[in-house]
Write a protein that binds this DNA or RNA. Structure first.
Length: 771
DNA sequence: TACCAGAGGAG
DNA sequence: AAATCCTCTGGTA
């Protein structure tokens, strides 16, 4: 048994050698492949001439005519084998200029990846059975000037935790009287770094986890190590950690011992207000983790108070332990994505959803002998960005409270449309099929009924496999195996749900606006028809969005009858649907309130509140407003008690006025979505961030600003401050009453049919304190 | 008051 | 570096 952890290539004696980094039952193994040549394809309008011309070029090892699939035809192209991977880009440019060349293809696939595609090897296979050794580490650094500068501020501690149970904090400060079994005091920063590196090797670690290691820990470690002329040789082949560019950010690569940065993964899979290690830990395990404000690290270190130092060492240790625990929880899904897309985990763990879909499609295309299209040029991308199309349909809700609500939705609507209608760039408007009825082609395009497209086949594969996994899941009793199967079905769902968005993504290789548009149009037809049928059936349609419909029978008190009628209805609809499609009875809600499109709340039979779109779901509203809104919803939906709701609002306003609301209830979290200088209109979060920058804090695109509206300043933006610079009690009570709590609760009361005057009175009265 | 930029959610 | 649909806020004229 073995698992492929990483792959690369080296040049030895002017020959290219692929290296496969395996973990086997016996340990680590680097296997070499020496007979795999770099190659690419040339489409030519004169194969003979092109072949002769290309054969004369330096570094070309062979040219042969091969048959490949292009869109829906088989065509002959030239396969050009070359000496070294670096010859590919050179030769591509030369050959592009040749008279008969129409296009050069597959000349931008990285060589090691090319081997992986062609060999069909599945990375991370058996990863769970081989008991991989996982470690995590974390640095604490000196930071007297606010943000630490690696050029001058030393690393103070390195914490380390691994799956064999080893725990360490290395430091070089003697603190008398402290005995902690994980604490290891060494002579210098240099020795600390060396101990860490040696431990990773001695422990034979397979995967290294960090929390933000790409952009902090590894770059910092590298720079500090460089000062001492130490090489951070953590690679299995004794190579250094390499910092590569990944778009705007860095990526720290450890050869053969994949480094997984958990921070970007957490940002991708969780939707939180903050993404500190503490917040993510709380979200995942519902446990508080020890936290020390990083900006205080230097003063703590300088003071060297034994009691405080003990806390800091414990905190440092908890960082590594938490990161390890998060890693162990998150890695199985990452393994699975790596296996399904067949991409090494270092890359797949850092991939966007469009990249993953594309990786999968490229591998499927190779299997089907399809010639892979080139990436679109920037000019084409810009052109594609200009065009838009009509997407999903949203039903105007029947506003207010309703009882006995049934929810139907189409199971995986878009994937099932892609499969059922064979939607693919290569099947669109084929000449072998006739244009069908309007339902089949609402955008005027039709899709081939004879030949399955690459994308429908791929989505079909994912969906079928998911059905099988779910079947196995049902029969499985072993909880561990159940977990693996559940992760597998999650990964399959993730990928099949990304396919529609991929079609409309301007940088996609298999971009097709027409396909995206057709999928959306068909989606609208299915939901429209369902709504129409529901109304004909005597249901009241309360709301619907994209693939869902909320219905009830107004005046009907008999819940059993409503549910029975609903089930009858869905099976009736399903009889008329194509194979892969299904309308599901999703749930029953005794009570609910619809405010506007995409904003509503439901209470289920267990009394659990389900809220969509309202302020309580948004990170850019304060907790005080969100909490109050939740309590008001609860009073209305559970207790049917508007007076109680009003009391809640009054009490909250009193608290705000009294000035004793905690800052953390008042913080508003808003992301910086563009460059700090690109704003035409800067909102409060940008103004707050600019003020913090003047005080030495760093803010960049992608960061979330955590701010409070204080009393100092004229406009709201003027009054907004980053929370770390706000003193206790320094908040603008009027803002939190009039711009946070009241709007959030009024919206709900308004939908209940309170007259505007009543509400104004309520609001005004409350604002003025005439309670 | 009307409009726009900006943010973030739903599905 | 997935799409569109939609609501709402705060700034500006």
């Amino acid at each position: 048994m073995e698992t492929l952890l990483d792959i690369d290539y080296i040049i030895r004696d002017e020959k290219v050698v692929i290296r496969l980094f395996y973990k086997t039952e016996k340990g680590r193994e680097i296997r070499e492949v020496k007979d795999f040549e770099p190659y690419f394809y040339v489409i030519s309008d004169n194969l003979e001439e092109s072949k002769k011309e290309i054969e004369k070029l330096d570094n070309v090892k062979g040219v042969k005519v091969v048959r490949k699939v292009e869109v829906r035809e088989k065509i002959d192209v030239l396969k050009v084998a070359v000496k070294l991977p670096q010859n590919v880009p050179e030769l591509r440019e030369t050959i592009k200029g040749f008279e008969h060349t129409k296009e050069v293809r597959e000349a931008a696939i990285p060589f090691a990846e090319r081997y992986l595609i062609n060999s069909g090897i599945v990375p991370m296979e058996n990863a769970e059975h081989l008991k991989l050794r996982i470690a995590s580490f974390d640095l604490e650094v000196y930071n007297p000037g606010g943000e630490p500068r690696a050029g001058q501020d030393p690393i103070l501690m390195i914490s380390y935790a691994d799956s064999t149970g080893m725990r360490r904090v290395w430091t070089y400060r003697e603190t008398p009287g402290i005995k902690l079994d994980f604490l290891n005091i060494v002579k210098s920063e240099q020795e600390m770094i060396q101990r860490f590196i040696q431990t990773v090797k001695d422990q034979e670690i397979d995967i290294l986890c960090t929390y933000n290691g790409d952009n902090f820990d590894f770059p910092y470690l590298n720079e500090r190590a460089e000062r001492y002329k130490i090489d951070v040789r953590l690679g299995i082949d004794e190579s250094r950690v390499r910092l590569g560019r990944r778009g705007m950010n860095l990526g720290a690569k450890v050869r053969g011992r994949p480094h997984i940065d958990l921070y970007p993964i957490c940002r991708q899979i969780f939707n939180l207000s903050r993404y500190t290690l503490e917040d993510v830990y709380l979200e995942m395990f519902n446990e508080e983790k020890k936290d020390i404000n990083a900006s205080e690290m230097f003063s703590i270190w300088d003071t060297n108070d034994p009691e405080v130092m003990r806390e800091v060492f414990a905190y440092s240790m908890s960082d590594a332990i938490s990161a390890l625990r998060i890693g162990l929880a998150i890695l199985p899904l990452q393994y699975e994505i790596s296996r399904i897309t067949r991409v090494p985990i270092y890359k797949s763990s850092r991939s966007s959803s469009s990249q993953r879909v594309e990786d999968l499609l490229i591998r499927r295309a190779f299997k089907k002998n399809i010639l892979i299209p080139n990436k679109p040029s920037d000019r084409i991308v810009k052109e594609r960005q200009r065009s838009s199309y009509i997407g999903a349909y949203v039903v105007e809700p029947k506003k207010g409270i309703h009882d006995n609500i049934v929810l139907f939705d189409f199971r995986s609507l878009y994937p099932s449309i892609i499969i059922s209608h064979n939607i693919d760039p290569s099947t669109i408007d084929c000449s072998c099929c006739k244009k069908d009825d309007a339902f089949q082609s609402p955008t005027g395009h039709h899709f081939c009924k004879n030949t399955k497209g690459l994308i429908p086949e791929t989505v079909g594969g994912l969906v079928d496999r998911r059905i099988q996994v779910k079947e196995r899941l049902k029969k499985e009793d072993d909880p561990e195996k159940k977990r693996f199967l559940n992760v597998e079905q999650q990964a399959l769902k993730l990928l099949s749900n990304s396919m529609y968005g991929y079609f409309a993504f301007p940088r996609a290789i298999w971009y097709s606006r027409d396909c995206a548009e057709a999928i959306a149009a068909l989606g609208r037809q299915y939901i429209h028809n369902t709504i129409e049928a529901a109304e004909k059936h005597g249901f009241d349609v309360l709301y619907g969005d994209t693939d869902s419909v909320y219905i009830t029978i107004s005046g009907e008190k008999d819940v059993k009858r409503i549910i029975a009628e609903s089930k009858k209805f869905s099976s009736e609809i399903n009889r008329g649907l194509p194979g892969a499609m299904e309308l599901e009875f999703e749930g029953f809600y005794p009570r609910g309130i619809f405010i506007t499109k995409k904003r509503y709340a439901l209470m289920d039979e267990k009394g659990i509140l389900l809220v969509r779109g309202l302020e309580v779901r948004r990170r850019d509203w304060s907790n005080i407003a969100k909490e109050t809104q939740t309590r008001v919803l609860d009073a209305l939906l559970r207790d049917n008690d508007p007076d109680k709701a009003a009391e809640i609002v009054k009490a909250t306003i009193q608290r705000i006025k009294a000035g004793d609301v905690e800052l953390k209830e008042l913080v508003i979290h808003t992301q910086i979505t563009r460059g700090m200088n690109e704003y035409i209109q800067a909102g409060p979060h940008i103004i707050a961030a600019r003020k913090a920058i003047k005080k030495g804090r760093e803010f960049k695109q992608g960061d979330i600003v955590h701010y409070v509206v204080t009393t100092k300043g004229s406009s709201i933006s003027d009054r907004a401050r980053v929370v770390d610079f706000v003193g206790k009690g320094d908040y603008d009570a009027n803002y939190y009453i009039n711009n946070q709590v009241l709007p959030a609760v009024m919206r709900i009361l308004e939908a209940l049919g309170y007259s505007e005057d009543e509400l104004k009175g309520l609001g005004k009265q409350m604002t003025l304190g005439g309670l």
